[in-house]
Design a protein around this nucleic acid. Structure first.
Lengths: 262, 262
DNA sequence: GGCGTAGTGTGCGTTGGCGCACATAACAGC
DNA sequence: GCTGTTATGTGCGCCAACGCACACTACGCC
């Protein structure tokens, strides 16, 4: 719990337990990446960047860390440099589904920009450990109000987010569990350095909003066909082209949308 | 096809045929509603409103009218005063699902604001005939850039839209066809004057991303239980409280979110 | 190096929604 | 009123995903 982490903002004092194996902190080295590893920050003009830079504080985010719960007031926005961040909509009975997945192409904390006062309506967690730079809400807003290129970038990213969520809708609605799973793996892979994803099938199931056993079966099929290999909590992609063959169109659409951002 | 209508912007010259029975134009009287019947416009401060007012052109929108297709450049944003507007994400094979439903609380044409250059990634159609005021893209952008309260309202609405789509995700994922259907009816009803919705089961099925027969069955059950009555293309809600009993939590969540906007 | 827990495998029966193929009925236009 | 079209009703078989129950096993920890 070093001061490096963004303040945890939980609604209830009895938030679901989240595990932070000590090893994780060893595995992930101190952030070697500059803020410009984040595509948004990288594209901010120098004049604007110089105003922001002093306020960018590096944070290390271990896998499973809850960035924020529902109905909290955000104090910071996060600009990831590596790792993956997942936004989940959770229902009363605990059922959930991810509606967005963000890496170093975006930011977490949209509701700050959009006049929501930073009040969240969803849960955000660290899907894959990584690093980010956090920016105080007031500094973010101040720069956003100035209306330079920074604002353009943030709005443009918000639009991409809307499109991503809309695509998730049809994907969840019309495609099979296996296709959802393939899309999720490829999207994750695009935001990770290697070809391995560290995540339990249970968590994947929560992310996709399906049964854990369903993930087991799909993963089993894909392993049998030699596309992936997995062991407790780790998926290794062996044959990415074959995976792209098997995924639904949604992956391609989202990837194209993402490329437009650059 | 009076000049009153917003210019139709189709990608292909062979867009799917849309029917406009002449009667529809008779049923819907000439727009008696002022621009301020739209909640966004109603809340703009006078000084800003006076800049916009000269550019607001009334349009009449018949049921089924395609506001825009995918991949077109929007020339106008629409501020509805009545009627319902539905945004659909369509896939290659034609399968679709609505990801948002907008009445006089919002606007259609978000992508103009968000730096997308008004290039759409979805289809928008008129679900229930109504009226709107259209605003030229350049005027909209100009006022948006000024950064007054108008911009705040537009951003706030965009956030509500994001939350709406996210809620749709879990609703589609975890709730039954019948619950989706009930939610859709209640949301539509909230945006309509009477207690009748004019829409065929075929179109409802496209909106919800399910089979037409599934809608027939669900509607049959609800009619048998006395909650609704329907005839070719018309649903009348007879027992709204019972419907609210039967709908999933999503309706309540969305309604609450919407009330925050006011 | 054993122990316990968290993660995974498997096998049911159940079911909601799909796809297809028609039958039937309501309404619009003449 | 007649007629053609468009909307709705119904009955299949089928299958993906569910819910539950209970193995099994890998790995982290002491």
């Amino acid at each position: 719990m070093s001061a490096n982490f963004p303040e945890v903002q939980t609604q209830s004092p009895h938030a679901p337990a989240v595990h932070f194996p000590n090893t994780l902190r060893h595995k992930s080295r101190p952030a070697p990446l500059p803020p410009t590893a984040n595509h948004l920050l990288a594209n901010v003009p120098v004049a604007e960047y110089q105003r922001l830079a002093p306020h960018l504080e590096p944070v290390t985010l271990p896998s499973g860390w809850p960035i924020h719960e529902v109905s909290v007031n955000l104090k910071y926005a996060l600009f990831p440099t590596d790792g993956i961040f997942s936004r989940l909509h959770v229902m009363e009975d605990g059922a959930s589904a991810a509606f967005a997945l963000t890496g170093n192409e975006g930011l977490v904390g949209i509701s700050l920009l959009m006049g929501g006062g930073g009040v969240t309506t969803s849960r955000a967690i660290v899907q894959s450990a990584g690093h980010a730079y956090r920016l105080r809400a007031d500094i973010l807003m101040q720069e956003f109000q100035r209306g330079g290129h920074f604002r353009y970038l943030l709005l443009r990213h918000s639009l991409a987010l809307i499109n991503q969520i809309a695509q998730f809708i049809v994907c969840y609605r019309h495609h099979s569990l296996e296709q959802n799973f393939c899309r999720w793996m490829l999207m994750s892979l695009d935001r990770l350095p290697g070809n391995e994803i560290a995540m339990t099938q249970e968590l994947i199931a929560n992310t996709l909003g399906v049964r854990r056993e369903g993930v087991t079966e799909a993963a089993g099929r894909l392993q049998r066909d030699g596309l992936i290999h997995y062991r407790r909590g780790h998926i290794t992609i062996l044959n990415r082209p074959a995976l792209e063959q098997r995924v639904c169109e949604c992956y391609g659409v989202l990837k194209k949308e993402y490329s437009h951002l650059l």
